[in-house]
Design a protein around this nucleic acid. Structure first.
Lengths: 144, 144
DNA sequence: TATTGTTATACTCTATAACTATA
DNA sequence: TATAGTTATAGAGTATAACAATA
Protein backbone atom coordinates (compact mmCIF):
# COMPACT_ATOMS: atom_id res chain seq x y z
CA UNK A 1 0.00 0.00 0.00
CA UNK A 2 2.59 2.51 -1.12
CA UNK A 3 1.58 5.96 -2.21
CA UNK A 4 1.30 6.50 -5.93
CA UNK A 5 -0.25 9.93 -6.25
CA UNK A 6 1.27 12.89 -4.48
CA UNK A 7 -2.07 14.51 -3.61
CA UNK A 8 -2.29 14.56 0.15
CA UNK A 9 -5.74 14.28 1.67
CA UNK A 10 -4.34 15.47 4.97
CA UNK A 11 -3.84 18.88 3.39
CA UNK A 12 -7.32 19.17 1.87
CA UNK A 13 -9.18 21.48 4.19
CA UNK A 14 -12.77 20.21 3.77
CA UNK A 15 -11.57 16.69 4.52
CA UNK A 16 -9.51 17.75 7.52
CA UNK A 17 -12.25 19.99 8.84
CA UNK A 18 -14.90 17.28 8.64
CA UNK A 19 -12.72 14.68 10.34
CA UNK A 20 -11.77 17.05 13.13
CA UNK A 21 -15.34 18.27 13.55
CA UNK A 22 -16.79 14.79 13.69
CA UNK A 23 -14.27 13.39 16.13
CA UNK A 24 -14.25 16.48 18.32
CA UNK A 25 -18.03 16.55 18.55
CA UNK A 26 -18.61 12.94 19.56
CA UNK A 27 -18.05 13.32 23.27
CA UNK A 28 -20.26 16.38 23.58
CA UNK A 29 -22.95 14.72 21.47
CA UNK A 30 -23.03 11.81 23.90
CA UNK A 31 -23.62 14.33 26.68
CA UNK A 32 -26.57 16.29 25.25
CA UNK A 33 -28.10 13.21 23.68
CA UNK A 34 -27.49 10.86 26.58
CA UNK A 35 -28.51 13.20 29.37
CA UNK A 36 -31.38 15.05 27.68
CA UNK A 37 -32.19 13.24 24.43
CA UNK A 38 -31.36 16.42 22.54
CA UNK A 39 -30.24 16.92 18.96
CA UNK A 40 -27.57 19.24 17.61
CA UNK A 41 -30.03 21.90 16.49
CA UNK A 42 -31.67 21.83 19.92
CA UNK A 43 -28.60 22.50 22.04
CA UNK A 44 -27.61 25.26 19.65
CA UNK A 45 -30.95 26.99 20.05
CA UNK A 46 -30.93 26.41 23.82
CA UNK A 47 -27.46 27.97 24.10
CA UNK A 48 -28.44 30.98 22.03
CA UNK A 49 -31.47 31.61 24.19
CA UNK A 50 -29.39 31.29 27.34
CA UNK A 51 -26.76 33.68 26.06
CA UNK A 52 -29.11 36.32 24.60
CA UNK A 53 -32.04 35.71 26.97
CA UNK A 54 -34.84 36.79 24.65
CA UNK A 55 -34.97 36.24 20.91
CA UNK A 56 -37.38 35.59 18.08
CA UNK A 57 -36.88 32.58 15.83
CA UNK A 58 -35.56 34.92 13.18
CA UNK A 59 -32.93 36.29 15.57
CA UNK A 60 -31.75 32.75 16.16
CA UNK A 61 -31.61 32.03 12.44
CA UNK A 62 -29.29 34.96 11.95
CA UNK A 63 -27.05 34.51 14.99
CA UNK A 64 -26.71 30.76 14.66
CA UNK A 65 -26.66 30.66 10.85
CA UNK A 66 -29.50 28.13 10.88
CA UNK A 67 -32.34 27.78 8.40
CA UNK A 68 -35.77 28.73 9.75
CA UNK A 69 -37.11 25.17 9.41
CA UNK A 70 -34.35 23.86 11.67
CA UNK A 71 -35.04 26.55 14.24
CA UNK A 72 -38.78 25.97 14.07
CA UNK A 73 -38.45 22.26 14.79
CA UNK A 74 -35.85 22.72 17.50
CA UNK A 75 -38.04 25.30 19.25
CA UNK A 76 -41.00 22.92 19.09
CA UNK A 77 -39.10 20.10 20.77
CA UNK A 78 -37.61 22.42 23.40
CA UNK A 79 -41.10 23.69 24.17
CA UNK A 80 -42.47 20.15 24.53
CA UNK A 81 -39.79 19.44 27.11
CA UNK A 82 -40.69 22.69 28.90
CA UNK A 83 -37.25 24.16 28.31
CA UNK A 84 -38.62 27.35 26.75
CA UNK A 85 -41.72 29.52 26.57
CA UNK A 86 -43.21 31.43 23.66
CA UNK A 87 -44.93 34.78 23.92
CA UNK A 88 -46.46 36.46 20.84
CA UNK A 89 -45.35 40.03 20.17
CA UNK A 90 -48.24 42.38 20.95
CA UNK A 91 -47.50 44.79 18.14
CA UNK A 92 -46.64 42.34 15.39
CA UNK A 93 -48.21 38.98 15.97
CA UNK A 94 -46.06 37.29 13.35
CA UNK A 95 -43.21 37.36 15.89
CA UNK A 96 -42.92 35.19 18.96
CA UNK A 97 -40.51 36.00 21.76
CA UNK A 98 -38.71 32.98 23.11
CA UNK A 99 -37.25 32.67 26.60
CA UNK A 100 -35.93 29.74 28.59
CA UNK A 101 -37.83 28.38 31.56
CA UNK A 102 -35.96 27.83 34.80
CA UNK A 103 -35.77 24.18 33.82
CA UNK A 104 -34.27 25.15 30.46
CA UNK A 105 -31.71 27.34 32.19
CA UNK A 106 -30.76 24.47 34.50
CA UNK A 107 -30.21 22.20 31.50
CA UNK A 108 -28.10 24.92 29.90
CA UNK A 109 -25.95 25.34 33.01
CA UNK A 110 -25.30 21.62 33.07
CA UNK A 111 -24.52 21.40 29.35
CA UNK A 112 -22.36 24.51 29.42
CA UNK A 113 -20.23 22.99 32.19
CA UNK A 114 -19.79 19.86 30.09
CA UNK A 115 -19.03 21.94 27.00
CA UNK A 116 -16.35 23.90 28.77
CA UNK A 117 -14.82 20.79 30.24
CA UNK A 118 -14.91 19.12 26.83
CA UNK A 119 -13.25 22.16 25.26
CA UNK A 120 -10.49 21.98 27.86
CA UNK A 121 -9.77 18.39 26.90
CA UNK A 122 -9.63 19.27 23.21
CA UNK A 123 -7.36 22.22 23.83
CA UNK A 124 -4.89 20.03 25.66
CA UNK A 125 -3.98 18.66 22.26
CA UNK A 126 -2.89 22.14 21.15
CA UNK A 127 -0.55 24.92 22.17
CA UNK A 128 -1.86 28.33 23.25
CA UNK A 129 -0.77 29.84 19.98
CA UNK A 130 -2.41 27.06 17.97
CA UNK A 131 -5.69 27.61 19.79
CA UNK A 132 -5.71 31.32 19.01
CA UNK A 133 -4.87 30.84 15.36
CA UNK A 134 -7.28 27.92 15.04
CA UNK A 135 -10.25 29.90 16.36
CA UNK A 136 -9.44 32.83 14.11
CA UNK A 137 -9.05 30.59 11.07
CA UNK A 138 -12.27 28.68 11.76
CA UNK A 139 -14.19 31.91 12.12
CA UNK A 140 -12.77 33.12 8.82
CA UNK A 141 -13.72 29.86 7.08
CA UNK A 142 -17.24 30.07 8.51
CA UNK A 143 -17.96 33.24 6.54
CA UNK A 144 -19.67 31.97 3.37
CA UNK B 1 -30.85 41.03 22.05
CA UNK B 2 -28.05 41.87 24.43
CA UNK B 3 -25.76 39.20 25.75
CA UNK B 4 -26.56 37.94 29.23
CA UNK B 5 -24.24 34.99 29.67
CA UNK B 6 -20.51 35.34 29.05
CA UNK B 7 -20.15 31.90 27.48
CA UNK B 8 -19.05 32.47 23.89
CA UNK B 9 -20.16 29.92 21.35
CA UNK B 10 -17.61 31.29 18.92
CA UNK B 11 -14.90 29.88 21.16
CA UNK B 12 -16.40 26.41 21.55
CA UNK B 13 -14.34 24.22 19.24
CA UNK B 14 -16.93 21.58 18.25
CA UNK B 15 -19.34 24.36 17.26
CA UNK B 16 -16.71 26.27 15.32
CA UNK B 17 -15.37 23.15 13.67
CA UNK B 18 -18.78 22.02 12.49
CA UNK B 19 -19.70 25.41 11.08
CA UNK B 20 -16.41 25.75 9.24
CA UNK B 21 -16.56 22.16 7.99
CA UNK B 22 -20.08 22.49 6.71
CA UNK B 23 -19.59 25.79 4.94
CA UNK B 24 -16.19 24.85 3.52
CA UNK B 25 -17.47 21.55 2.14
CA UNK B 26 -20.51 22.88 0.30
CA UNK B 27 -18.78 23.90 -2.90
CA UNK B 28 -16.87 20.65 -3.24
CA UNK B 29 -20.00 18.66 -2.45
CA UNK B 30 -21.77 20.36 -5.34
CA UNK B 31 -18.92 19.22 -7.58
CA UNK B 32 -18.79 15.51 -6.75
CA UNK B 33 -22.54 15.25 -6.41
CA UNK B 34 -23.42 17.39 -9.40
CA UNK B 35 -20.87 15.95 -11.83
CA UNK B 36 -20.91 12.30 -10.75
CA UNK B 37 -23.82 11.80 -8.34
CA UNK B 38 -21.35 10.74 -5.68
CA UNK B 39 -21.64 10.81 -1.90
CA UNK B 40 -19.04 11.85 0.66
CA UNK B 41 -18.03 8.29 1.49
CA UNK B 42 -17.61 7.55 -2.20
CA UNK B 43 -15.21 10.31 -3.11
CA UNK B 44 -13.19 9.50 0.00
CA UNK B 45 -12.83 5.86 -1.04
CA UNK B 46 -12.12 6.87 -4.64
CA UNK B 47 -9.37 9.25 -3.52
CA UNK B 48 -7.78 6.66 -1.27
CA UNK B 49 -7.68 4.13 -4.09
CA UNK B 50 -6.18 6.69 -6.44
CA UNK B 51 -3.51 7.66 -3.96
CA UNK B 52 -2.59 4.16 -2.75
CA UNK B 53 -3.45 2.31 -6.00
CA UNK B 54 -4.33 -1.06 -4.47
CA UNK B 55 -6.05 -1.62 -1.14
CA UNK B 56 -8.43 -3.97 0.61
CA UNK B 57 -11.58 -2.60 2.22
CA UNK B 58 -9.88 -3.00 5.58
CA UNK B 59 -6.92 -0.88 4.45
CA UNK B 60 -9.36 1.86 3.51
CA UNK B 61 -11.15 1.61 6.87
CA UNK B 62 -7.86 2.23 8.66
CA UNK B 63 -6.44 4.95 6.40
CA UNK B 64 -9.69 6.88 6.03
CA UNK B 65 -10.97 6.25 9.57
CA UNK B 66 -14.22 4.91 8.15
CA UNK B 67 -16.40 2.12 9.51
CA UNK B 68 -16.42 -1.05 7.40
CA UNK B 69 -20.13 -0.70 6.57
CA UNK B 70 -19.52 2.73 5.05
CA UNK B 71 -16.62 1.40 3.01
CA UNK B 72 -18.61 -1.64 1.90
CA UNK B 73 -21.48 0.45 0.56
CA UNK B 74 -19.22 3.04 -1.07
CA UNK B 75 -17.25 0.28 -2.81
CA UNK B 76 -20.48 -1.25 -4.06
CA UNK B 77 -21.65 1.98 -5.65
CA UNK B 78 -18.26 2.76 -7.14
CA UNK B 79 -18.21 -0.72 -8.66
CA UNK B 80 -21.69 -0.26 -10.15
CA UNK B 81 -20.46 2.87 -11.88
CA UNK B 82 -17.40 0.95 -13.14
CA UNK B 83 -15.02 3.20 -11.24
CA UNK B 84 -13.28 0.27 -9.52
CA UNK B 85 -12.61 -3.44 -9.86
CA UNK B 86 -12.45 -6.15 -7.21
CA UNK B 87 -10.09 -9.11 -7.30
CA UNK B 88 -10.22 -11.75 -4.54
CA UNK B 89 -6.89 -12.51 -2.83
CA UNK B 90 -5.69 -15.97 -3.92
CA UNK B 91 -4.21 -16.89 -0.57
CA UNK B 92 -6.91 -15.54 1.75
CA UNK B 93 -10.23 -15.33 0.03
CA UNK B 94 -11.72 -13.16 2.76
CA UNK B 95 -9.77 -10.22 1.25
CA UNK B 96 -10.57 -8.46 -1.97
CA UNK B 97 -8.07 -6.21 -3.67
CA UNK B 98 -9.58 -3.02 -5.01
CA UNK B 99 -8.18 -0.94 -7.87
CA UNK B 100 -9.58 1.91 -9.92
CA UNK B 101 -10.53 1.40 -13.55
CA UNK B 102 -9.25 3.90 -16.10
CA UNK B 103 -12.67 5.53 -15.89
CA UNK B 104 -12.31 5.77 -12.11
CA UNK B 105 -8.90 7.34 -12.47
CA UNK B 106 -10.29 9.88 -14.91
CA UNK B 107 -13.02 10.83 -12.44
CA UNK B 108 -10.38 11.15 -9.75
CA UNK B 109 -8.20 13.43 -11.88
CA UNK B 110 -11.16 15.68 -12.51
CA UNK B 111 -12.26 15.78 -8.89
CA UNK B 112 -8.71 16.29 -7.63
CA UNK B 113 -8.34 19.34 -9.85
CA UNK B 114 -11.56 20.74 -8.44
CA UNK B 115 -10.47 19.89 -4.90
CA UNK B 116 -7.18 21.69 -5.30
CA UNK B 117 -8.84 24.69 -6.84
CA UNK B 118 -11.42 24.72 -4.06
CA UNK B 119 -8.66 24.51 -1.46
CA UNK B 120 -6.94 27.50 -3.06
CA UNK B 121 -10.12 29.56 -2.70
CA UNK B 122 -10.47 28.59 0.95
CA UNK B 123 -6.85 29.38 1.69
CA UNK B 124 -7.26 32.87 0.32
CA UNK B 125 -9.21 33.61 3.48
CA UNK B 126 -6.10 32.81 5.56
CA UNK B 127 -2.48 33.82 5.90
CA UNK B 128 0.33 31.37 5.16
CA UNK B 129 1.03 31.00 8.84
CA UNK B 130 -2.63 30.42 9.64
CA UNK B 131 -2.81 27.66 7.03
CA UNK B 132 0.18 25.84 8.50
CA UNK B 133 -1.09 26.06 12.05
CA UNK B 134 -4.63 25.20 11.03
CA UNK B 135 -3.61 21.99 9.26
CA UNK B 136 -1.45 20.94 12.18
CA UNK B 137 -4.21 21.66 14.69
CA UNK B 138 -6.88 19.86 12.66
CA UNK B 139 -4.66 16.81 12.35
CA UNK B 140 -4.10 16.85 16.11
CA UNK B 141 -7.84 17.12 16.77
CA UNK B 142 -8.54 14.25 14.37
CA UNK B 143 -6.68 11.82 16.61
CA UNK B 144 -9.41 10.25 18.77
C1' DT C 1 -13.05 -18.68 17.47
C1' DA C 2 -11.54 -14.66 15.00
C1' DT C 3 -11.53 -11.83 10.81
C1' DT C 4 -13.31 -9.72 6.35
C1' DG C 5 -16.94 -8.02 4.44
C1' DT C 6 -22.32 -7.62 3.70
C1' DT C 7 -27.13 -6.63 4.90
C1' DA C 8 -30.84 -4.65 7.66
C1' DT C 9 -32.45 -1.03 10.25
C1' DA C 10 -32.85 3.08 12.66
C1' DC C 11 -31.42 7.48 13.83
C1' DT C 12 -29.27 12.20 12.93
C1' DC C 13 -28.72 16.01 10.05
C1' DT C 14 -29.66 18.92 6.04
C1' DA C 15 -32.18 21.01 1.94
C1' DT C 16 -36.24 22.63 -0.46
C1' DA C 17 -40.87 23.60 -1.60
C1' DA C 18 -45.36 24.58 -0.26
C1' DC C 19 -48.17 26.36 3.10
C1' DT C 20 -50.55 29.59 7.04
C1' DA C 21 -51.04 33.78 9.31
C1' DT C 22 -49.99 38.44 9.79
C1' DA C 23 -48.55 42.83 8.12
C1' DT D 1 -46.83 41.70 -1.86
C1' DA D 2 -43.61 40.67 1.83
C1' DT D 3 -42.28 38.56 6.23
C1' DA D 4 -42.36 35.08 10.33
C1' DG D 5 -42.95 30.79 11.11
C1' DT D 6 -44.83 25.76 10.09
C1' DT D 7 -45.39 21.36 7.69
C1' DA D 8 -44.16 17.79 4.35
C1' DT D 9 -40.84 15.23 2.12
C1' DA D 10 -36.66 13.62 0.45
C1' DG D 11 -31.86 13.04 0.56
C1' DA D 12 -27.29 12.74 2.88
C1' DG D 13 -24.73 10.98 6.59
C1' DT D 14 -23.95 8.00 10.68
C1' DA D 15 -24.27 4.02 14.09
C1' DT D 16 -25.11 -0.70 15.48
C1' DA D 17 -26.34 -5.41 15.38
C1' DA D 18 -26.76 -9.55 13.02
C1' DC D 19 -25.14 -12.23 9.44
C1' DA D 20 -22.19 -15.18 5.79
C1' DA D 21 -17.89 -16.80 4.28
C1' DT D 22 -13.31 -17.83 5.19
C1' DA D 23 -9.43 -18.72 8.03
Amino acid sequence: MTQKDDFDLREFLPYLLNQAAEISSQSFQRTYKGRYGMLRTEWRVLFHLAIYERMTAKDICEKAIMHKTKVSRAVQRLEQRRYLQRKPDEKDRRHEWLTLTSQGRAVYEDLRAHAQQHDQVLMQKLSTEEITVLRRALNALSQP
